[in-house]
Structure formats: C-alpha cells, structure tokens
C-alpha cells in the first residue's frame, strides 16, 4: 500500500546484521530475511518489521538507536553497506527510504566503529565522549537572568548565517564512523567555529578550543589527516571549512595560551 504510487512493488531482501550481546562479548554478522518490504518504508521501519517477526518467533530483536525519525535528533546511527547512514548523501539513517534499494539486495548493517564509541549492544554504541567534549567548553559562560536586550549586539546577517550552518551539527557521530582514523575533528570544529564567529563567544574562544581539543584527544579519537571523508558523509553538510577554522583557532590560542 504505497503513498501515492499504486504500482510500488514489495521487495525481498537479505540483511547481514551485527549482533553483539554487550560491551564485553564478541559480535558477529548474522543473516536475516526481510520479505515484503515496501519501497515507501523508511530503513528503520524495515527494521521494525524484521524485529516484529523476530519477537513473534521468540527471538531477541535487533537493538538500534533512534528517536525523532526526522533527521534532527542525531540518535540513529547505522553503518549501511560500508557507509555511515547508508548510500544517500545528506541523509540520516532514519530518513533513508527503501526505494533506494532493489529486490534481492543483501544489505550489511553495522554499528559505528570507533575506539571512542564502544558498542553497548548490537547496533547501539556509547557516544558519551561527545557529551564530555561539549562539557569541556562547548558553551558561553552566562548565567540565567540579568542579560541585556537581545538587540543590543547587532550581528551581521552573513555572520549569523555562517554560525548557524556550523550550529546545525546533530551530534550523530557519522563523521567519526566514516573516518579511517576515527577522528572527531568535524564534530568539534562545528561547535568551536559557531561560537568563535559570534561576538558573544569571542571572550572565551582561546580556552574553549584548547579544552575541547584536549578532551577530544583524551577520549581516544584519532588524528585528522584531511581525507574529507567526514564531510562527505555528514548528513547535515557540516563543511570542512570548520576544521580549518578550528586549526586557526587552536594555533592562535596556543600562541598566547590562557591555559597556564
């Protein structure tokens, strides 16, 4: 039963899914059949169907992270056929639809792979390292209340728009999963750039970049070797320019470090 296309034909697929009981046990790829899949389904709805079948058969369903299913919360995180969030550019897993696959396909589904993102179970990974990086400095130190009127500081539209572009990072971790070094540079640079561009964020720009980079290193993310794989797979198009900006911020911060 398709949305507007009475001719959409259901597909039969084979899934090769990473199953892993918990953080410490080893995992493996297991094959499942996904039959009668409508091209109008989202990728996660396809997994729902498979899981319902598993449940009815008394088997443990496949665990995967998801929440908004609208491409904005950053919770979904599947590595599909060797690509973070699958084959469509600029698309999160939850916004990927089955019409991009064909009848008879075999689809391999794995979790994000990175030392800093250990697997909790099956396709669910622990991304708390990202939160700790933000806690290290991804904020402007203002308390609630006592703030002057919002229009006291005009911000040129071009600056506000660029800061917005950087601010749209959904924290999904696809950049890390796509990078052969498992580097988190794109993620970190998005926040550093957003706040460094805005007048409100300039006061703390030096300590911010130093502390966030230090935390990133501490978490065990790899070094950036400029492959650009991160930006190519980023579902919201965070640009590599941000990494350049992070580098400039970092160098100038170190040159006159306030972190002594």
């Amino acid at each position: 039963m398709a949305g507007n296309n009475p001719n959409a034909k259901p597909m039969n697929l084979t899934l090769r899914v990473w199953r892993q009981k918990n953080r410490t046990s080893p995992g493996q790829l297991v094959d499942y059949k996904a039959n009668g899949i409508s091209p109008d389904m989202s990728f996660l709805e396809m997994l729902d169907v498979v899981n319902e079948d598993l449940l009815r058969a008394g088997q443990d369903p496949i665990a995967f992270d998801h929440d908004c299913r609208e491409g904005i919360c950053g919770m979904c995180s599947l590595y599909i056929n060797g690509r973070a969030h699958g084959p469509e550019r600029g698309t999160t897993t939850c916004q990927l639809h089955m019409r991009h696959f064909s009848d008879g396909d075999t689809i391999t589904i794995e979790p994000w792979r990175a030392a800093a993102f250990p697997v909790h179970k099956d396709l669910v990974v622990d991304r708390s390292a990202f939160d700790r990086i933000q806690q290290a400095g991804g904020y402007i130190s203002v308390n609630t209340g006592g703030i002057p009127d919002a229009n006291v500081i005009p911000i040129p539209k071009t600056v506000a728009d660029k800061a917005f572009d950087a601010a749209t990072c959904i924290g999904c971790g696809a950049c890390v999963a796509a990078c052969k070094n498992a580097s988190a540079m794109l993620f970190v640079s998005a926040k550093v750039s957003q706040l460094a561009m805005l007048p409100q964020g300039k006061t703390e720009r030096k300590t911010r970049v130093e502390n966030m980079v230090a935390q990133m290193d501490l978490e065990g993310f790899g070094a950036c070797t400029n492959t650009g794989a991160c930006a190519a797979e980023c579902p919201v198009g965070i640009s590599l320019e941000n990494i350049n900006m992070l580098r400039r911020e970092f160098i100038s911060a170190k040159a006159s470090s306030e972190n002594v």
Partner: peptide, 19 residues
C-alpha cells in the same frame, strides 16, 4: 530571547544585524 542570544543561539537576522 535575551537569554538564548547570550548563549549563542543563532536566530535569524535582518541585514541590519538585528533579530
């Protein structure tokens, strides 16, 4: 609105730089 702007929330702006 004041609070959010102080935190760095990038609201839409006019060419004159105001919200």
């Amino acid at each position: 609105i004041d609070q959010c702007v102080a935190q760095g929330v990038p609201f839409a702006r006019e060419y004159g730089g105001l919200l």
